[in-house]
Design a protein around this nucleic acid. Structure first.
Lengths: 221, 221
DNA sequence: AGTGAAACGGAAGAGACTTTCCACTTACTG
DNA sequence: CAGTAAGTGGAAAGTCTCTTCCGTTTCACT
């Protein structure tokens, strides 16, 4: 099985119609199954529900991480759109906080999305796309708010990246909006104000993000 | 295999010498293996390294969660001791923040501890011991700081419990102390000050804790 | 010291996920 | 349209973790 479905290979040689159709079907079905059962759901269930052979699923996405990555990429466009809307909000602090709220809302509403993002961001080789497309947007939102004197100057993109991922975990079926409480707490912390003590240490480099996500999941790296 | 090793059964009928010795050996070895490989490390490796039969490991701890719980209980005493030291610090805010720092220090220094705690706190039936023994200590530390006017009045024990678990994830091998940055950010948020906007929503009840931990791990509940 | 029960080791068996395989089907190209 | 290559389904095989089992050993009690 060497026909891993990667964007590069697709650029080189397009899939046959039936193969492309099956790939799409796998992704749609996986999104559904993962949302119900989590990312550890078996390929058997995806195959059965999609009405194709399990060998086909494995052939198209030999590693689970590849399937997750492909799903991740379908989600990036959504996040980028949220970022662009946030940038259009006149007040910089409101734009930044709105971006945070909308991002977490999407995570919480779509359990599949949440896990896909966490899993993808822990694979060091896979987070490049996310970082290149979403990183600049967050950077821009932050700089705008810092220039306005609303956001403390000692926080950076990577500082906020982690918080964004963590906050989405802070809700339960009984209190689906609980994360808003902790987001408000985070906003209190991020708000610039006179006499604030600068944060210790440097913000982590971009490349540290995947290590942090591994820690979050308690995985070995 | 019905001889699960639980504290209740041990109170009823003590283990034979050899069995008790093996149980201790399993726990010591598991702590070591888990710290190296994570909680998903195989029983085979624990058995091999301990020099006993894999059937014995499974017999003593039929479910992995039981092994994790037993390890958790060896750790509670340490956390309680930290809490008691914190309570002895004259300044209430210093005592509370010191407790946080020491707790996270222990988590970060012992990878096994971190995962054991996260795993245990996600099993709803297993967190009773932790909550009963550590909850009152944190409660006391918080009330002292709130009475002093140092800690904002709208946060509760469960609010801080989650944060405590999350912060330990925020470090990498390259930046082992990175969590201190985010702890400082959290302290800024927790610090009482005039004109602060109260946090929205109610703090989660005790029982929500395990749901939150499941979310953190991206697991189905 | 004798006895019965607890506990043992580790191989065989069971279960579940992943990989391989091959006759057959579909699509593409000249 | 024919030939060839891509792609298929799903069973068989492989792999790994967990469970069962039984002859043997160890322990505790009388």
């Amino acid at each position: 099985m060497t026909t891993a479905s990667t964007p590069m290979q697709e650029a080189e040689r397009p899939l046959r119609k039936d193969a492309a159709r099956n790939r799409e079907l796998i992704l749609e079905t996986a999104a559904e199954v993962f949302a119900e059962q989590g990312l550890e759901a078996g390929y058997d269930e995806i195959a059965r529900r999609a009405g194709i052979g399990v060998g086909t699923v494995y052939r198209r996405f030999p590693e689970r991480s590849e399937l997750v990555q492909a799903l991740f990429e379908t989600r990036i466009d959504e996040m980028v759109a949220v970022g662009e809307e946030a940038a259009a909000i006149p007040d910089a602090w409101d734009g930044l906080t709105w971006f945070f709220e909308k991002s977490v809302e999407k995570q919480v509403a779509d359990r599949g999305l949440k896990e896909v993002m966490v899993q993808t961001l822990s694979e060091s080789g896979h987070m490049t796309v996310g970082r290149e497309r979403i990183g600049p947007i967050v950077e821009s939102l932050m700089q705008r708010a810092q220039a306005d004197g609303a956001l403390r100057k000692d926080v950076e993109v990577t500082d906020l990246g982690m918080q964004l991922m963590l906050i989405g975990s802070l809700s339960t079926p009984e209190q689906p909006d609980l994360w808003r409480r902790y987001l408000a707490l985070l906003f209190d912390a991020l708000r610039a104000r006179p006499g604030i003590t600068p944060l210790p240490l440097e913000a982590p480099p971009d490349e540290a993000m995947h290590m942090l996500m591994c820690n979050l999941q308690g995985r070995r790296t």
